[in-house]
Design a protein around this nucleic acid. Structure first.
Lengths: 217, 217
DNA sequence: TCGTGCCTTTACCAATTGGTAAAAAACATG
DNA sequence: CATGTTTTTTACCAATTGGTAAAGGCACGA
């Protein structure tokens, strides 16, 4: 009886393979996040990676394979902050901590943010299945968690799904629309600090339940 | 003395020209908003418009000209709600009304939203000047207005620039990331109503100044 | 009926696209 | 160093890209 799938597929890559795959994926992240899937070209990726085009196709099965690999690899770490929201923690603290980490990630990894933004704006043609399975599960789970928090009066009444959407929207906006933010708010360091304070206030006011006592030292 | 620019350029287009230009721009809006500038092709636009490729180039000077025309034409109406925020009105009402109209526009014109989203994510290479001039002026003006409102205690203390960013982020999210929203929150009509209520609450809680008396009938 | 001006099609083009075949070079290992 | 393996390059493709030239159609007034 053949179980169909080959043994767990230990990558088992030589160090030169690891190095070049990393170079390619990094170059591809630059190009895909800037131009979207269809607007990106293998030549561009090759040039940016410092390799020849056929050499790139020696490491990956094609343009689409690179893109899919990127999406799969980055999805996990992109969702880590949400995943780590702790059912045992203090609800408001957990949510505010999540928001803060999400905003920090948008500032630290704008390319990743734009990669996903491009893919989803364009209808998520290479991510649809992933969304429906992995992401949806996590999303539903965390929605349920937030709902119980609300139910126990630990948070102000709020629609968990739309709450998550607005957290994503506000935090990722700074990465995805960086070009616009920079034009409209040129002093970068000030803008970043202001963003943090604003987002913190926005969601704290939304989520703080009525009659919540503020601990002042 | 030649003033350099030709007379005000009355378009003076025949009805067949109007019809075909409209068809082309509509098709181009579909294609550009779905694939971004570089990912879009003239053939695709031509097919969608029901015209031949050379025929399209009879009406427009090239791919870029179509894209620029679209951006210019749509920019004005896209910014109309912000423009109409009235310095004479009641601050909180004006802002909440703006937010509501912005959300409605995202639902009614998702293609336009995605057109701009694509352009800005990709660094706004064909819109940079417009951003720096027209949009920045409007943005600064409205920021100043909001600042005076805050100063007079009509709104809770808030950074006007970041406030506008978060309004844009939250409202446009529903258009730009529609593919994701639909997967995670499948019941469309409920989702839309929920979005309205959530966004309303989010910003009303942020903006309502301390000690604001709620008028109950 | 004949122009005349507007619109559309046909037939192209050079450049770029994603991708391949196969030789050549570099590398590892005995 | 000899040998087999991994990596890289060279030389190509067929298809698609944005764009052009020029001939054809078509409506409409004289």
């Amino acid at each position: 009886m053949d179980d169909g799938k080959p043994p767990p597929e230990t990558p088992k890559r030589s160090r030169i393979q690891k190095r070049n795959r990393k170079r390619i994926l990094d170059a591809a992240l630059n190009v895909f996040s800037q131009h979207g899937y269809r607007g990106a070209t293998l030549d561009q990726i090759a040039t940016e990676a410092g390799l020849s085009k056929p050499n790139i196709l020696y490491y990956f099965d094609g343009k689409e394979a690179i893109h899919v690999d990127l999406l799969n690899t980055l999805m996990a770490e992109w969702l880590a902050p949400l995943q780590e929201m702790d059912p045992e923690g203090e609800p408001l603290d957990e949510l505010m901590r999540y928001i803060s980490r999400k905003l920090a990630m948008s500032h630290a990894y704008p390319r990743e943010s734009r990669l996903f933004a491009n893919e989803i704006i364009q209808g998520a043609p290479r991510m649809g299945p992933h969304l429906a399975s992995g992401l949806k599960t996590l999303f539903d789970e965390k929605c349920a968690l937030i709902a119980t928090w609300v139910h126990h009066g630990k948070l102000a009444p709020v629609d968990p799904g739309h709450l998550i959407f607005s957290i994503w929207a506000v935090t990722q906006h700074y990465a995805d629309f960086e070009a616009q933010v920079e034009v409209l708010m040129p002093r970068k360091t000030e803008a970043r600090a202001g963003a943090e304070a604003h987002v913190e206030t926005l969601f704290r006011k939304l989520l703080t339940p009525p009659g919540y006592s503020v601990r002042t030292a």
